[in-house]
């Protein structure tokens, strides 16, 4: 039975991670930026699961479990910050929030 080498999954993971990076760099909407960060976290999860299956070690999948918990915490706090931001500044565009810019 023909299977793909590990590099196939790593390259797919790298491509998805890069799409997330481009999303963070180009989008102005804070909610979409948070979603692009989730894309990056998921891309890394994919490479962790691939390593876990190819090396034969369960700990990669445990790490994915913890990454999911941290991502849930990050999403909750990040979206609460977006809500507070919108209440105070009436915008969700990150380039209009430049109070701390020098």
């Amino acid at each position: 039975m023909e299977r793909l080498p590990l590099e196939a999954y790593l390259l797919l993971s790298a491509t998805l991670f890069t799409i997330g990076v481009v999303g963070v760099l180009t989008r102005r909407n804070a909610i979409v930026v948070l979603m692009a960060i989730e894309i990056m976290l998921n891309a890394v999860n994919l490479s962790l699961v691939a390593f876990s299956a190819y090396v034969g070690n369960v700990e990669g999948q445990l790490l994915v479990f913890f990454v999911m918990a941290v991502a849930a915490a990050e999403a909750a706090v990040g979206l609460a910050i977006v809500l507070a931001l919108f209440r105070n500044r009436q915008t969700v565009f990150i380039d209009e929030v430049n109070l701390m810019r020098w």
């Binding site: 299977r3 080498p5 590990l6 590099e7 790593l10 876990s52 299956a53 190819y54 090396v55 034969g56």
Partner: peptide
């Protein structure tokens, strides 16, 4: 990496 297929334990 040298891993050509998933581990049999996967």
């Amino acid at each position: 990496t040298g891993y050509q297929a998933p581990s049999p334990k996967a």
